[in-house]
Simulated scan of single mutants.
Amino acid sequence: MKTIRKYGWMVIVIVALVSLPLVMFQHAEFAGTDDKAVSMVQGIDKNYKPWFEGVKLFDSPEIVSTFFALQAAIGASVLGYYIGYSRGKQQNKKA
């Protein structure tokens, strides 16, 4: 019964952490840091032109965000594998 309560509270906290920013900032504009940096510099110096453009393979924002999510998932998988492997290795040493 204790584990159900413990995990129930954890699920509630996780749902709150995910949904609260989405509710609070419904109409916020989310732009990349590259875009914001260029606009800040252009605010200071009107003649500023970026040195180069980033590689744009796809023009669709949906495809770009999908590849970003895929990159994050692959990175999280590699990190999770390494942590699990290291922990299993330590537990085998103790046994």
Rank of each mutant, 00 (worst) to 15 (best):
F52D: 14
G8T: 02
V15K: 02
Q91V: 09
M24C: 12
S39T: 11
T33R: 10
A73E: 07
E53F: 03
V23F: 15
F30L: 13
H27Q: 14
F68R: 14
M40Q: 10
L70Y: 08
A37N: 12
E62Q: 10
V13M: 09
V38K: 00
F68A: 13
D35S: 13
T33P: 04
T66G: 08
Y48I: 00
K46C: 04
V64W: 07
A37W: 08
M40L: 15
F52S: 14
Y85R: 07
A28L: 07
G32P: 01
Y7D: 00
S19K: 02
S60G: 00
M40C: 09
H27G: 07
S77Q: 08
M10Q: 14
Q42G: 06
A31T: 08
V13L: 11
G88I: 01
E53Q: 12
S39G: 00
V11N: 07
T66M: 15
L17I: 07
S39M: 12
I74S: 07
A69E: 09
F67S: 08
G8W: 01
K36H: 07
D34T: 10
V15N: 01
Q26L: 10
A69D: 11
I14R: 02
L17V: 09
D59L: 07
F67C: 08
S19L: 14
L20W: 04
W9K: 09
Q42D: 05
I44F: 05
G43L: 03
D34F: 09
V23G: 01
N47D: 15
E53H: 08
I44A: 05
G43Y: 04
Y81Q: 05
Q90L: 10
Y81C: 07
W51N: 13
L79G: 03
A73S: 14
A16N: 04
F25A: 09
L20A: 13
M40P: 00
E62K: 11
Y85M: 05
M24Q: 11
E29V: 06
E53R: 06
K49V: 15
S19R: 04
N92H: 10
V78P: 00
V41W: 11
Q71E: 11
K49F: 06
S19H: 05
Q91G: 00
P21D: 03
P50V: 04
L79H: 02
F68C: 07
R87Y: 11
S77T: 15
Y85W: 15
L20C: 05
S60T: 06
Q90H: 08
A76L: 14
F52K: 12
L70R: 09
A72V: 13
T33C: 09
Y81D: 03
Y7L: 11
P50I: 02
A37D: 14
Q42E: 15
G8F: 00
R87K: 14
E29T: 08
G32F: 06
F30H: 08
V41F: 13
I14K: 02
V11P: 01
F52E: 15
M10S: 12
